[in-house]
Design a binder for these strands. Sequence first.
RNA 1: GCGGGUGUGGUGAAAUUGGUAGACACGCCAGACUUAGGAUCUGGUGCCGUGAGGCAUGGGGGUUCGAGUCCCUCCACCCGCACCA
Length: 938
Amino acid sequence: MDYKFREIEEKWQNYWIENKTYKVYNNSSKPKFYVLDMFPYPSGAGLHVGHPLGYIASDIYSRYKRLKGFNVLHPMGFDSFGLPAEQYAIETGMHPAETTKKNIATFKKQLNKIGFCYDWDREVQTSSPAYYKWTQEIFLKLYNSYFCNTQQKARPITDLIEKYATKGTKHFSSNQWNAFTDAEKEVWLMKRRLAFSSYGEVNWCEALGTVLANDEVVNGVSERGGHPVIKKKMRQWYLRITAYADRLLQGLETVDFSDSMKEMQRNWIGKSEGAEINFKISKPFKDDTNNNKEFSDVIKVYTTRPDTIFGVDFMVIAPEHEMVETIISEEQKLYVEKYIAYVKSRSDRERQAEKNISGVFTGSYAINPFDGKKIPIWISEYVLIGYGTGAIMAVPCGDERDFKFAKHFNIPITNIIGNHFNGLEANPTKEATLENSNFLNGLVMKDAITIAINKLEELGIGKRKVNYKMRDAGFSRQRYWGEPFPIIWKEGTPTALSASQLPLELPHVEKYSPGPEGEGPLANIQNWINTPEGKRESSTMPGYAGSSWYFLRYMDPENNQEFVSRTASDYWNSVDLYIGGTEHAVGHLLYSRMWTKVLYDLGYIGFDEPFKRLVNQGMIQGSSRFVYRINGTNTYVSKNLISEGDQYLYQEKKVDKMHVDVNMVDGLELNIEQFKQWRNGENNNAEFILEGEKYICGVEVEKMSKSKYNTVNPDDLCVQYGADTFRMYEMFLGPVEQSKPWDTKGIEGVHRFLKKLWRLFYSESSFSNGIQTNGNTIFTKDAATSEELKVLHKTIKKIDEDTERFSYNTAVSAFMVCVNELADLKCFKKEILENVLILLAPYAPHIAEELWNVLGNEGSVLDAAYPIYNSNYTIESSKEYPVSINGKLRTTMHFDINAEQKDVEPVVLANEIVQKWLEGKNPKKIIFVKNKMINIVV
RNA sequence: GCGGGUGUGGUGAAAUUGGUAGACACGCCAGACUUAGGAUCUGGUGCCGUGAGGCAUGGGGGUUCGAGUCCCUCCACCCGCACCA
């Protein structure tokens, strides 16, 4: 009988559903294990081969853990709120709820074809009211909490109110507090709430009347329509994630993420220690009587290097700095205004990426607080208002950007580090001994830092300061397709709904155009936005709201009393293995880590890190194929006939390079018939200039996307080769963590492997008189030979190690080696094959189930006992040693496994080849590493 | 600009701790079986060289008996940067 993978896979997928094979219960005598994938956004494009990479890896691990005796939670759901559905609605009028429902159905269908072991009874969808009810409730918990700096944890806001009412603060007494109106109280409370409202800058597009995401803005104009975009201040909601900065840093020590991932989070948090220093400003002006006067005020700078204070040659402030207005001099006014207008059109990223130095002098000077030196104050886009104090003291001899700025604008440079500074580039060292530095002279810089700060504090002109690059997280979006805020505004003061009023459902809308003043579409729905108590908040929560806590809901998906019961969350605890892409390195992971910490502080869960171990799957890129059409004709020229240069040419004629669907190309050879029928046969009459008999396509690696025709649909591969082949091929491509372009070429090898495995159980079918005869089962119950056992146990060890360390590509290779060797040995023995099937079950579940039953076993192979490695079967008695002379391999020799250097030396030196290479010389040294190698140094 | 990552045959890759570079596959070449093959099987396949041998892990330098692996330096490409999820 042949390997009829389509029938087998359908059979077992139905079996799994009927027998609830993947149903998971919250009570079990087995130890728990929680394996989670980052859930997908159900895009309209459906699943492509990039999505399942991580899912297959986690599925393998889940099945493996289950076989090893764990109660494994391995759920799946959908991150179904988001911008694309809304964009699509704007374009087509289709309601996001409708498209989302459809897309989820497609995704699920596609996922199920690959044979994942999800317990769909636990599915969550962030856009369903039954789910976002709890997202809203957790928002209320954040809103009704503050971060207690003494205890370094979240506490109910009522504790703070209590404190204000009884003890007051340095800003007000308890009596004053009690006399405050509710609105006045709210102003103070808002400064502490973990979810709070404040003003922030957004990308505002006047023409579209809406706020835009950064990637909707290209070169200062909107992607849609190319309208100008400026920064605008608007009321926004924020999460006070900065309060958790230190705990987010400390928590990294306790989790098993890659070093690079931790590094990225640390950089994002960007903790630095330094000082804030007050610089007095001197701005000359003429008073009414035309006398020269000096205006004076203070600008605070933040620096991590207060030791370089005597090397400050100028100050730079951000174009948005609040002091700009007051310090510009009459003469410079025009230049400054022009410069600021230019900066307004630029994004933060452009401003930092810019290599051309730009800036403008304000006309004012700052006074070095220690020595009274007058330094010019400049404005430049490389200083960002959101970081530090939005003003820096520039030390050109020690900072590269400051140095270039000084050179560019001819600002004299003070050298405070002697010959550590060569005048050609800045030197950021901390090891130099300070010169020209007043009371710091003679000190090594790193020691001078503390001394300088102490002096600043002593003189009251500055203070020690810890700074974070991380900002509080913007938590509102002027959009429709997201969770509504359970907030009502009255006369500028917000009131929260109570938990019992949730969910606050998203009202149905017909149109998605923005509301007045850049508000979200919800502002247009009069009977929803207006309530007797006041106006509802019109913005919605961002995509990461629902995804910040979804891993908790899977534990207890049907609970309608709480977002998760303490019993369920205590049992499942944090996620043991989390798989997803590095693109979430900072955003999603930091937000869910913060939410987890808050919920822990408030006592709702018993752990404060959500993910114990994180594995990042690489990105699957597309491998695009191109055809070349002679400009203005319908004739296509094969790739290698074209000369490439500034443009493509064929016999002096210009050639246009065009994407062609990668699925119509076998390797590099275009299927011309398919191509003619492509896109309703628009190339029906095309002519081809071939090389040999073939049309060869061009190749390039690009992002996988529909518009580049380089997407490959897993459904097609499952139909053609089967899910088991597809799963194993995705793993065989290379390490899970590595990014790589998809290429279907090569899948045959894995498919052949499964067919070869099949032939260990069934004899081949054959044709006689035009009729196919079925092969019969050929497995036997004979006892295995030591050689066969050796193959098996070698494989058990390898698969176990490789699965544990996520080296699935080498595991697949080990299966191939195993089956090749068993085939060579003509081993059809149940005793051996049975165990191979159990090992294989996580990787190729359908064929493993089928053959497991062919061998006469009942039920699912997942309930079998995992084979145990026995080293007795794999012991070798001798070892083939590589023998090198001067590090170059010259021969190999066999020695007993226990042979020592003294046993080996005479034999090696007597060897013919060794003799030849020694050329009669005496060896200087013989290096013998037991079980590794032999090297003779001459 | 800042941060992170990757560079090994024609291709995907392997080499887990500094110890036989290229396992396992794809592709290609030769052959067997077959009415037929997009089935199956056998052998070969890093590069140069008839050969002995030499050269090879992005380039250059270093440490070491020994480097794909460690150190320095340069180059190329990919990803992220706060309203895409």
